[in-house]
Amino acid sequence: MIPARFDYVRPGSVEDAVRALAGGGDDARVIAGGQSLLPLLRLRLAFPDLLVDVGGLSELRGVRETAGSLEIGALTTIYELTRDPLLTAHCGLLAETATLIADPAVRHRATIGGALAHADPAGDLPAVVLALGGSLLIRGPEGEREVRAGDFFTDYMTTSLSPGELLVAVRVPRLGGDWGFRYEKFRLTAQSWAIVGVAAVARRSNGHVAEARIGLTNMGSVPVRATAAESAAAGAEASAAALREAGSRADEGTSPPSDLRGSADYRRHLARVLTGRALAAAAGAS
């Protein structure tokens, strides 16, 4: 890798990290696992003056249980998400999705905080956290604030993080046993990004879907909720046919990109088909 010149600090505490970031202003960048940032540096698409390496902040690593929710430290690696017992038990959607990201080498370095802060609309975790109704804990010079996922992703690869702020944790609800989940990732090769991804959680009651939440990957410049499909699914029979019908409204209100991987109309089609399948799986429909 032959990046342009930059300065580098490796703070020993969250406070020092925030101070270093605030001092660096617009030209400072956090580096966590480096799996998104290093390619940008290598291709000379990013020119930060200062890298603040948060890799040493072990307090930001791991999953904790709090009242009704789980708090995932920003430095928890994607690999750790795949096998964390709390996540596996209470937030299977995150654990399952993590297994579908990149390859083992990348998963061992990449962090959940980096994946969310990077806010790539083709990234899988933003739509998942959105579907879960999660929120993000952010530490800045002024202290800590909590932002709902729906308010965090503001534009293409842009978040509500200000210069000087550090994402410290992700909070997701503990889902009870009546919730099912599924992430449908449609990609060209096992290690490539989603053309479209559908994250669905559904609560089943008496053979029907009582409630469903759906997040879409790569159907716009930010991850989006498929609200029309969610309403259509609510109260629907938990059958493949009924949920396919609900899924057919998944692309309403989206504006998917057209690129090398797929045209916008193909993405719309995929979103509809995959949402039907994700809902059916989440609702345990046969």
């Binding site: 390619p39 291709l43 390859d103 090769t189 096992a190 290690q191 490539s192 990004w193 090398l260």
Partner: peptide
């Protein structure tokens, strides 16, 4: 437009 291995898709054993 396929100047990197993120765009030029070389399959792996998993595929």
């Amino acid at each position: 437009v396929t100047a990197t291995l993120a765009d030029y898709l070389v399959p792996s054993a998993a595929d």
